[in-house]
Design a protein around this nucleic acid. Structure first.
Length: 589
DNA sequence: CAGAGTAGCCAC
DNA sequence: AAACGTGGCTACTCTG
């Protein structure tokens, strides 16, 4: 390793700035006293050039010293190479108001190169080993960075940042070979918006939430009592009066299944679908409601309270930028992408006084992508004329005028429109339509006939889907519009596996392009918000939530809409993109 | 006793 | 018989 220089004197920084500004590429890393930017401080900022390593001790220098390096860190040049840049971006933004510009993230690059293989790990040590055959020690990362630093710690900090430059070279090679340069640019430009969104967090009305939780707890107690008395006759043991001594654990699918069978219900499992035939049975009704209340209480009720940030009082999800092979974000701790869409729950996500939430979501983005890819004349016609696609589909399928389409017909058309994008077959379509029709059964033949009439109307959609599925199987990969890649490993002699790959081949380009568009929108919206006291606070696959000062809400809402549409147009040329925007005090549409 | 696997269910 | 895509979370249950 080249030698490193520890910098503790502000006087050294002016010369360093000129030196660094002349470099095309820098490795950048930080060491912090905690992982949470609101609770930890930045101790070290390490910067690597191909020749030298600089370790800045920010406890000695003070945070304001970073102002001197602001042009280096914020500018388009040099390129900053980081591993998991989101982390450092949050720290630098929160503590020094610095917005990292022009990032190359070796973790995201490695995830793109993995091309959908979610078993691969992407820690710095894993990636260095995989692409450079070098061992990197990560143990000191978790050491105490707040006191006197040992030589070992400083050497670790220096080694960590130095490896980023050769790592970038190796990864650029891979990205080029796999045609992933455009996808990488998209991801890198999304890092700062993602970091800012996490820092901002979702506003959360904890008092309103507590009131909800109490109501749920009462309801659950009531349901539990009712269920136990219904199940008493079949409970494991009885007391002298024939009452259940050992109650059934209502949270145990196995025990519940046993209980239901003893009551005479012939069921495979206890899922909602399994219980559909018995939906009017009193025990089943109680059980399903118990489950839904229990889910609300366990996952959300207590979970959100535990995750409420001690400093901000808000919910800061951990967004995994490439959390899925399709390029969608995933989110955890808590997952604020899966908040139940119930008015009383969404009402707890409420902008602070004087502020508003802008909820902007793409209208039917995936179906528009399908129309674009397939260039199906009928589907294009519906979108180009701004018509209700599901209604038009029903009108064409059932050969009735659009205004005569019944609710049920529209619901069936909607089910097919969405289902076919997932590669759904006749059997599951029949099951879904049975749900739509509220227990009126539908035969396999009937479902097949519906699919046939659908593809008679949307012939090109059918052709595109078939080709997408077949191509995925023959070339063993699939791409989104940005070039994002998913490589498929499967046994071609296994019909089930082949069918699964065909479904992925149909779905991935659509879902993946949806993710491309949203990520582009994250960047464009983030840039547009700069002049305002506004911030992105959540992002859910086809939706962006922005918090803004009340006075600027209408203006910013229009800006958000424009930027989201502009993002869509970069990928979708012939189909119009529509974005629905609502300004509200809470997260409601 | 920690980790893995499973069922069930929340989002898009 | 099932075969509808992508995730995360909780609780139960089994395993070593």
């Amino acid at each position: 390793m080249s030698t490193y220089r520890v910098i503790t004197q502000t006087a050294e920084l002016e010369a360093l700035r000129s030196r660094l500004l002349a470099e095309p590429v820098l490795g950048v890393d930080t060491e912090t006293t905690a992982l949470d930017p609101y609770q930890g401080r930045i101790r070290l900022l390490q910067i690597a050039t191909p020749e030298d390593i600089f370790v800045l001790d920010l406890f000695a220098l003070g945070l304001q010293a970073l102002d001197i390096l602001r042009p280096v860190l914020e500018g388009e040049q040099p390129v900053k190479v980081l591993h998991n840049a989101k982390f450092d971006a949050k720290m630098l933004r929160h503590h020094a108001g610095i917005e990292l510009g022009r990032v190359f993230d070796t973790m995201l690059a490695s995830q793109l190169v993995a091309a959908g293989d979610m078993t691969k790990r992407h820690g710095l040590a894993d990636v260095a080993q995989r692409y450079l055959r070098e061992r990197v020690e990560k143990a000191p990362q978790l050491s105490d960075w707040s006191g006197e630093l040992s030589r070992g710690q400083l050497e670790y900090a220096a080694r960590d940042v130095a490896i980023l430059l050769p790592l970038r070279q190796a990864l650029i090679q891979q990205l080029k070979e796999l045609g992933l340069i455009r996808a990488a640019k998209l991801e890198f430009e999304c890092v700062l918006p993602t970091a800012a969104m996490e820092l901002a967090g979702m506003p959360f009305d904890v008092e309103r939430w507590r009131a909800l939780v109490e109501a749920w707890e009462q309801r659950r107690a009531h349901l539990e009592e009712a269920l136990q008395s219904e199940l008493a006759p079949v409970a494991t043991q009885m007391d002298l009066f024939g009452r259940a001594e050992i109650a059934i654990n209502l949270n145990s699918p196995h025990q519940v299944l046993t209980g239901l069978r003893r009551l005479g219900l012939t069921v495979e499992g206890t899922s909602e679908l399994d219980l559909l035939p018995y939906r009017d049975h009193p025990v089943v009704r109680l059980l399903l409601e118990y489950r839904s209340v229990q889910k609300l209480l366990s996952t959300f009720g207590r979970g959100f309270l535990e995750h409420r940030h001690p400093v901000t009082g808000r919910l800061h999800g951990d967004f995994h930028q490439i959390g899925t092979p399709t390029g969608r974000y995933s989110c955890s701790d808590p997952n604020i992408q899966q908040v139940p869409n119930l008015p009383e729950i969404r009402a707890c996500f409420r902008a602070p006084a004087g502020r508003r939430l802008i909820v902007a979501d793409y209208s039917q983005i995936e179906l528009r992508i399908l129309a674009e890819f397939s260039q199906d004349p009928k589907m294009l016609e519906a979108f180009l004329n701004g018509l209700d696609l599901h209604r038009m589909t029903a009108s064409w399928m059932f050969k009735v005028p659009p205004e005569a389409v019944t609710k049920e017909q529209r619901a069936i058309a909607k089910t097919i429109n969405f289902g076919l994008m997932y590669g759904m077959g006749a059997a599951s379509l029949a099951a879904r339509i049975a749900e739509v029709r509220e227990r009126t059964d539908i035969s396999l033949a009937e479902a097949e006939a519906l699919i046939a009439s659908y593809f008679e109307i949307y012939r090109r959609v059918g052709e595109w889907l078939r080709a997408a599925g077949d191509t995925a199987v023959s070339v063993r990969h699939s791409r989104s519009q940005s070039g994002r890649l998913w490589r498929f490993q499967f046994d071609p002699s296994d019909r089930e596996q082949v069918a699964a790959i065909q479904r992925l081949g149909k779905n991935f380009p659509i879902q993946g392009t949806g993710a491309d568009i949203l990520k582009r929108a994250m960047r464009l919206v983030y840039d547009a918000l700069r002049p305002y006291k506004a911030q992105i606070v959540n992002s859910i696959h086809d939706e962006i939530v922005v918090e803004v000062a009340e006075d600027h809400a209408p203006e910013v809402a229009e800006l958000v809409r424009e930027r989201m549409i502009a993002a869509g147009r970069e990928f979708i040329k012939t189909v119009p993109i529509e974005v629905e925007v609502v300004i509200s005090e809470a997260w409601t549409k």
